[in-house]
Each structure stands twice: as C-alpha cells, then as structure tokens.
Design a protein around this nucleic acid. Structure first.
Lengths: 289, 289
DNA sequence: ACAAATTCGCAATGACCATTGCATTTTCGC
DNA sequence: GCGAAAATGCAATGGTCATTGCGAATTTGT
C-alpha cells in the first residue's frame, strides 16, 4: 500500500519505460510512492538512503522516468502532491460575509472551486488541442472581459501559437475576413452579450472555422454554431460580475496548450525572453523555472 | 479552515521580538505570510528577491525570530503550512487527475486562498478609500498584466470614479503630466518589472500624488515611494505566472470601493447602463442585482 | 562458460546554498 | 547636528547538492 493517491501513482508508473526498472531503480520508485512528503522535500541523497541505493541511482531513475534529473522530478511530484492536499481545503463553499473585499475573494474561491470540481466535464484539452492544431486562432472578447481574452492570447502567443485578439469591431472585421477552414474562433462572453460577438461566431462558422465559446450563460444565439461550450461561473459581489473564474479557466486552457508540446513552448518562450533582454525595457526580469 | 491560516500568522507574529522588526526584516515576514508556498520551497535567495532585500537579511530575520537560520525557519513553516492543509483534509485525500488544466486551477485556488486568509492584514480598505477620495486615479499596468489594471479600471469607472489606465508609455507620459496633490497612482506589476513603471511611481511621488503598489515582488525601486504595498502570490503552473490572484484582489478593491458610497455607485451604474441600452450594441444585457 | 550489455557505486566537479565578518547605511538618542 | 548603535548589503567561505565519467558488478544472450 502506498501513501500517494492512485492518480499520482498511476501517472508515475505510466512513465516507467517499457523495458521496466531494475531492482535498485524500482526501490527508488517505491520510496517516492510510499513516502510522498520525503519525496517532496528531501534531497536526492536523502531518498537514496531511504531506498538503499547510491545517490546517482536516484538521478538516473528520474532520468529513466523521462525527467531531466532529480529536481525536475521532485518539482512535478511536489506540484501534484500539494495539489491533492490543498484543493479541497479552499474549494469548499464559503458563506459570503465579512468585509466587501473578503466577500469578493470568497465568491471567487467558490467560483473557481466549482470549476475545479467540474473540470473533467469541461473539455479543456479539446480546446487546447484545437488551438494547437489550428492555422490561426481568433479570440473575440470585448468590454471588460477583453481582459480574459488578452491574458489567454498573450500567453498562447508567448508559447508560439498564432493567436490574435479582437477586442473592437474594426479588429474583428479585419480578422474575420482572414478566417477559414482549419482556423479556430474562441468567443469569450460574460454578463453582457455583444451583438457583434454573436455575428462573429456566425461568420466564422460560415467560413468553415471551428467555433468555441467560453461563457457564463449559454445563450442560444452564441452557442448555436459552437462545437464546444466551456461554461464558467461569473458571479461577483456588490454590483459587479467576476472575471476571476474566467481568467482562471483561460489560464488553464493555456496550461493545457503548453503541455501539448512542452519543448516547443519552452523554445518559444526562451526566444521571446531573449528579445526582452535585448530591448532593455525592464527594470527586472526573473528567471523562469 | 480560515482559522488555520490565522494560526500560522499568529504564531509567526508572536515570535517577533519586542523591539519589533525594521522595514527590511518586516518585508521578509510579509513575504513569508503572503506567499506561503514560496516560503515552504524557496531558497533564502528566492525569498530575498521577493522581499526586495539581501539574502543575508533573510537569514538574520529568521534568527531574529528565534531560529538558528533560514533552513530551521523554513522547516517549521513547512510543517505548519502542510499541517494546515491536511488538517481539514483528513478523510478525503483528493484525487488529482494530473491534467495541466486542473493543476492550474488548483494553483489559483491556493493563491486566492492564501490571500483570503490574510485579507484583514492586507489593507484593501485603505486603497479603496484613497481611490474614493482622490481627485483622479492613474492605474499603471503594462504587458500581460494590463488585464488586471483594465478590469479594475473598468469597474471603478463604472462606479463613477475618475480612474484611468495607462498601459503604454505615451498614455503614461500624458497622464503623469496631469497628476498632482490629492491624486493616486496605483502601480500594478507582476513578474517582469518595467522600468517605465518604476519611473512612473517616482514621478507621481515627486508631483505629490499618493503611490500604491499591487505586486508579487517588493522590488526596492518599485516600493520606495509607495505608502502601501499589496503583496499577491502569482505562482502559476507550467511556464506562466498566474494573474488570477491579482485579478481577484483588484476586484476585491473595487468591491470595497463600491461599499464606500453604495448609493453613488448604484446611480452611476444605472446611468451607464441606460447609455448601453440607448446605443443598442448588445444582444443581451442581464439585470443587475 | 564467455562476451557484451546494462546497471549501479564511487568520486570528481561545478553550481548553488546559507552563514558570517566587515563595511556601509540608516536610525536613534542626546 | 553629531556620535553611537543598529540594520543591512557585499562578498568570502565552507558545506551540500545534483550530475556525470569511469570502473566494478551484475545481468543477459549466445
């Protein structure tokens, strides 16, 4: 019996090469699965001692599992293990109370929590795959929720994918004229539904593009031409809807997109960051992990 | 659940010596509390960068708090943070599917959860009050995180406050020329720090405006002129930082702003919505609560 | 049984880490 | 304003880390 959840174990065992692992490497794997906290925080030497192997074997086992080395494996384990611990901590329903600011944050936690619980039904991977294989992707997002479109577009472009944002009607008209078979249109709409967004989905569909919708309300006019609708809660407090769950989902889409071809994503980001350094606009640019 | 967050903060603040901590050491403490995940895993150098201090100050702060050094403090933080996560999760070890999208959502839940637990310490009301009483408010937000600035600006304007966004240098130069006593500058900065954002805070301060900062990293150049710094975790998954906690806090600021004078806010929103109806651009406009 | 291939341990190596002495800067008290 | 004390930055230093080349041990195939 191991201490990790089935999913983490399933994932890790799925990375074992076809030829299998020899006894010492298998012992390392066993320690990772049976002592997840040590795996998350311990040094390679620490784990080696637990497994009764030399530290080099820990590195080599990580490499056999498809990682660059121990730190890369540990980071992934850490992310998965902590994610499994924390999700239900904050995903529970909150009573909206206290200061308006706290109420707002709690409402957002509820919204994202609900999204996380339903994410298996929301086919994020389907949208990410569509963007990855599209000739070009047009993101339509207007008004205040252009922010969500901008965030998604920015990161997707950074990852090297041909994604553009249309947040006003002139941009939209020009971009639609270039859309066709093999392209993707992603319509982002919360709260108010712009007539021009509806028309854009119809036009894109008529031109042979695939239509996806990210919205809080599946208005029939908006979803009529969509092959997929990603529903997101957008309830805020006081007078305003909240864009936070929408943004969280947009980022989740890009996280999934980045995982389609990680090497490509990394290469594009590094190239972009080299340009940033050359332009000298920044006071500070942190290193990426 | 909320109690566990307060408990870690209460415990840590209880270790502050009677003579208190000076600004740099206090910044370290603030980072430990506002970014618990980084505190658990990061090196002393990493935390120093977030706090805008030298690495030696991290060690000395740990010693001032009664620990032998940074590793001892980190181990205790780690134990308490993990304990706070698992205490409310005793029976239900959450299963993680392993999808990048779900990991992204869980990371955002972590970030906003950490923010919600500390919201009493983050003086959101102070910033909201400053905006409410300012002659004008300039929000400086560039690159991908202009999205956060745009969302805050949009809603604040809807509520009838004179808030404008500067997301490029021309806008920024023009807007700064009009800033003076009684005005507010809010600098929003995540990940990369633009030199022009730093210069904007200095200029605004020199012209007599009040400076506020919303950021993940307390870079000394950015916070030097600020009367208040709102720290937000911005850790994402894969290759990208996450804007979700920043957006959630921006919305929380506006929720607090709306509560300063609810009748005024409602009147302005209704007037704006009447205009929307007159312009006839929408396919659908839901009624507000 | 032998040779080749693979696995694994040892140890050198370079990178990164935390700590601390010294110098500089800032703060405090008079 | 000045001097002393405290805070903080810089950089040297020793320690630990992960990785990898080489050789030893083990396994595999003929």
């Amino acid at each position: 019996m191991t201490e990790t959840g089935d999913a983490v174990e399933h994932w890790l065992r799925g990375r074992v090469p076809e030829r299998g692992l020899k006894p010492k490497a298998a012992a390392v794997l066993e320690v990772l699965l049976s002592q997840p906290r040590r795996a998350c925080f311990g040094s390679a030497a620490d784990l080696a001692e637990l497994a009764g192997v030399n530290v080099a074997t820990v590195t080599r086992t990580a490499q056999a599992l498809g990682f660059a080395g121990w730190p890369a494996l540990q980071q992934e384990l850490r992310a998965r293990y902590l994610s499994s611990l924390s999700a239900s901590d904050v995903a529970e329903h909150h009573e909206v109370s206290g200061s308006p600011a706290l109420a707002s944050l709690h409402r957002d936690l509820d919204g994202i929590g609900a999204l996380a619980r339903r994410v298996a039904e929301v086919d994020v991977a389907g949208l990410a795959t569509a963007i990855a294989s599209a000739g070009r992707t047009l993101v339509v997002a207007k008004g205040s929720y252009a922010a969500v479109g901008a965030a998604l577009t920015h990161n997707a472009r950074l990852a090297g994918y041909p994604v553009e944002l249309a947040s006003d009607d002139a941009d939209l008209a020009n971009a639609l004229a270039r859309l066709g078979e093999g392209d993707v249109l992603l319509a982002i709409s919360f709260w108010r539904l712009y007539q021009s967004t509806v028309l854009a989905t119809e036009q894109a569909h008529a031109r042979g593009a695939r239509v996806f919708v990210l919205t809080d309300v599946a208005d029939p006019a908006l979803v009529r031409t969509a092959e997929q609708v990603l529903l997101v809660p957008a309830e805020g407090v006081a007078f305003f809807p909240s864009l936070t769950p929408g943004l969280a989902l947009a980022q989740a889409v890009v996280a999934q997109l980045a995982a389609v071809d990680p090497a490509r994503t990394r290469a594009h980001i590094e190239a972009a960051e080299a340009q940033w350094l050359r332009l000298g606009l920044l006071h500070r640019q942190p290193r990426r992990p």
